[in-house]
């Protein structure tokens, strides 16, 4: 077994444990590359059975158009049970990433996620988070326990020995499960290549309309993007290292149009992948931990 086989086996073991022990699991599906890998692993884990749990996409309504069409195509092709959840209240109030900043992420992502989990009564939710992404994630257990209010208590995590996961919960409590905890960005790309996993084409470089804003290249994905004075739309050869809400996701200039080129670029990368996520640094170096404590994935 090589390194990828070992990671694959670990993820499959985790998924089977959840399916066997947790009352009502769900898989968070964010349409990104990690979600695509997680989905493939789940198909393998339960083959020849269909997935024994639904997928949940928390839609902020600000995702790249291409992500949504990819999502719908994938769900149809694979016959997935996909739940889409939108915070209708936030939508009605016109909460958006341009005017509302951090509040936007809280209402349309964190709150929406908590509402969705409560609404369906899910007791376990798979997420594609990896420990190499960010410092507070590096500290999180694979089975990450959440209180009835979805809070994470980083100072009091359950011990997790060998692969003996304790899935016991009181009513109302839940657990977030991260089968890709031990994967790195490089592993993800190499696995995508090895397994020929379809991913959103935004990951590949192409000429795209972008504006430079606060040091990030933001793609103009639709006409809701209002230009600030002095900003102008340019067409640049760019790709995305991570995908999220288009106004909050920075593109990188690149000519990598194939998986090989992306892997090569990743291996030689001088910055970590989350530098392009505006959300992580908004609020200081500990902002991810704060969000996670409040229930963000």
């Amino acid at each position: 077994m090589d390194h990828l086989d070992t990671l694959e086996a670990e993820a499959i073991y985790i998924m089977r444990e959840v399916a066997a022990e947790c009352e009502k699991p769900v898989m968070l599906y964010s349409i990104g590359k990690d979600s695509s890998v997680m989905l493939r692993l789940a198909q393998k884990a339960f083959y020849p059975e269909k997935l024994p749990f639904p997928l949940l996409h928390v839609n902020t309504t600000w995702k790249f158009k291409e992500m949504i069409s990819f999502r719908d195509r994938t769900a149809k092709e694979l016959g997935l049970d996909l739940i889409e959840y939108i915070n209708q209240d936030g939508l009605a109030r016109g909460i958006n990433p341009f005017d509302n900043g951090a509040e936007y992420t809280d209402i349309m992502k964190t709150q929406a996620l908590k509402d969705a989990l409560d609404k369906y009564g899910f007791t376990a939710a798979f997420g594609g988070g990896r420990r190499d992404e960010e410092k507070s994630r590096a500290k999180e257990r694979i089975f990450s326990f959440r209180s009835a209010s979805h809070a994470w208590d980083p100072k009091n995590q359950r011990p997790e020995m060998w692969k003996l996961y304790n899935t016991h919960l009181h009513k109302g409590e839940s657990v977030r499960v991260f089968p890709l905890s031990n994967w790195t960005e490089k592993d993800i790309w190499q696995y995508i290549k090895r397994e020929n996993i379809p991913i959103v084409s935004l990951y590949f470089a192409a000429p795209r309309p972008v504006v430079e804003r606060d040091g990030n290249l933001i793609m103009v994905d639709d006409d809701r993007m209002v230009l600030r004075p002095g900003e102008k739309v340019e067409t640049k050869m760019v790709r995305f290292r991570t995908l999220g809400c288009y106004p909050l996701t920075g593109a990188m200039e690149s000519t990598a149009t194939t998986l090989d080129e992306i892997v090569e670029e990743t291996l030689g990368a001088v910055t970590s992948e989350r530098t392009s996520r505006v959300i992580d640094t908004d609020g200081g170096s500990a902002s991810m931990e704060k969000r996670k404590r409040e229930g963000y994935f």
């Binding site: 960010e134 500290k139 031990n182």
Partner: peptide, 17 residues
């Protein structure tokens, strides 16, 4: 990586690199 760790200058939980 945890806020409490930086505040107190100690390691509370395992960090994986």
């Amino acid at each position: 990586g945890l806020m409490a760790e930086r505040e107190q200058g100690i390691t509370i939980d395992v960090a994986y690199r």
